[in-house]
């Protein structure tokens, strides 16, 4: 019997193992997420405690032998006073706990609100069906960087996110770093966060936004400041010119075929902005908003049959023969 209890206990702890990792609100890696995690734990603990107390009281009442019931119309003053006291005590305790929790969450909110008040970096994230447009704002316009799906931030520094959308409501949620916040068309929401340590944190759209909502993820990559600066400077360069004859053919095809209608590659005639910016696409770790890892094969697979990988996504199946497909892949692979 005892062994069963132990096994049950062990089994119930097992799911908690899933709480750590690169996409978990219970494994905070920054002050905003930390504040929220602390709240979660505290709320859960307190509520569990209250629940246990209530259960104990209930069980005690059930177990206690029933006293003979007197005349219900005759009130026993002492007993009534006693009962009233208990009710009011419980009421008071409830009020105190609720007010306490309210205050806790209020102060947690205040803490969240000031995290990014001195943020040196502002990143504008625009939700699209089904990818993220990421723009690094800068007071010097020619140092504004637009990229997609992969967000690099300096570790240990507060970062301000401005969240908006162009089509439907999305929600930006990187559980290890911050709470979720909606991206609303025509409206700007502000989310501040800080990653304490370098690392890769997965984010996911947290508001159902259509067919490929599940495959709308992002990666926040926190790096030490010098590495981040180097990355930013690197990304500001125009796209690498095609290095091989095959890549050159791919470059020409890219500009001749439907690719050019939606995508941008800096330094070329391709200036589309309704699909991810591909200027440095091969430097990213994933493809199609975190759906595939970046590799030549995955690039080819995604171009050849996006509808097989993300059915309903807005990237169409384009009629390309083997040579054309490989040429475009060779070109894109060189865009580091």
């Amino acid at each position: 019997m005892r062994r069963i209890w132990v096994m049950c206990g062990a089994a119930s702890i097992l799911p908690l193992a899933g709480c750590s990792g690169w996409q978990s609100a219970l494994d905070p890696k920054g002050p905003a997420a930390g504040e929220l995690a602390w709240l979660i734990w505290f709320f859960t603990a307190l509520c569990t405690l209250v629940w246990l107390l209530v259960m104990i009281a209930l069980i005690m009442t059930l177990i206690r032998r029933a006293r003979p019931i007197g005349d219900p119309l005759v009130l026993d003053a002492t007993s009534e006073r006693h009962k009233t006291r208990i009710v009011f005590a419980a009421l008071g305790a409830t009020a105190v706990i609720l007010i306490g929790l309210t205050l806790l969450s209020f102060f947690a909110n205040r803490t969240l609100a000031v995290i990014g008040s001195d943020a040196a970096l502002t990143i504008r994230v625009t939700g699209h069906q089904w990818w993220w447009e990421v723009r690094y704002e800068n007071s010097q316009p020619n140092r504004i960087l637009t990229t997609a799906n992969e967000i690099h931030i300096p570790a240990g520094e507060p970062v301000r996110f401005i969240l908006t959308s162009t089509d439907v409501i999305h929600s930006f949620w990187v559980p290890n770093l911050a709470g979720k916040l909606d991206l609303i068309p025509g409206h700007e929401n502000v989310l501040d966060l800080k990653a304490d340590k370098p690392g890769v944190y997965r984010g996911q759209c947290a508001e159902f936004c259509g067919a490929q909502h599940a495959n709308m993820s992002t990666f926040v990559i926190a790096e030490p400041r010098p590495i981040f600066d180097a990355w930013l400077n690197d990304q500001l360069r125009p796209a690498a010119p095609p290095a091989s004859p095959e890549a050159k053919a791919g470059h020409d095809l890219f500009l001749k075929r439907p690719c050019v209608m939606c995508h941008k590659i800096g330094g070329t005639m391709a200036g589309g902005s309704v699909a991810p910016d591909l200027t440095h696409v091969a430097s990213r770790q994933t493809l199609a908003a975190g759906t595939l890892t970046m590799s030549r094969g995955n690039l080819a697979a995604w171009i050849a049959d996006p509808q097989g990988i993300k059915p309903g996504a807005y990237m169409p199946v384009v009629d390309l023969n083997g040579d054309e497909l490989n040429a475009i892949v060779a070109y894109l692979e060189g865009l580091r």
Binding site: R296, N298, A301, W302
Partner: peptide, 22 residues
Amino acid sequence: MMANGCAGCHTITGVPGAHGLV
């Protein structure tokens, strides 16, 4: 196979997510 895109184009028995029709 999952990392290198085989799964994107081929349907491969036993590989999760490999439903490619290319």
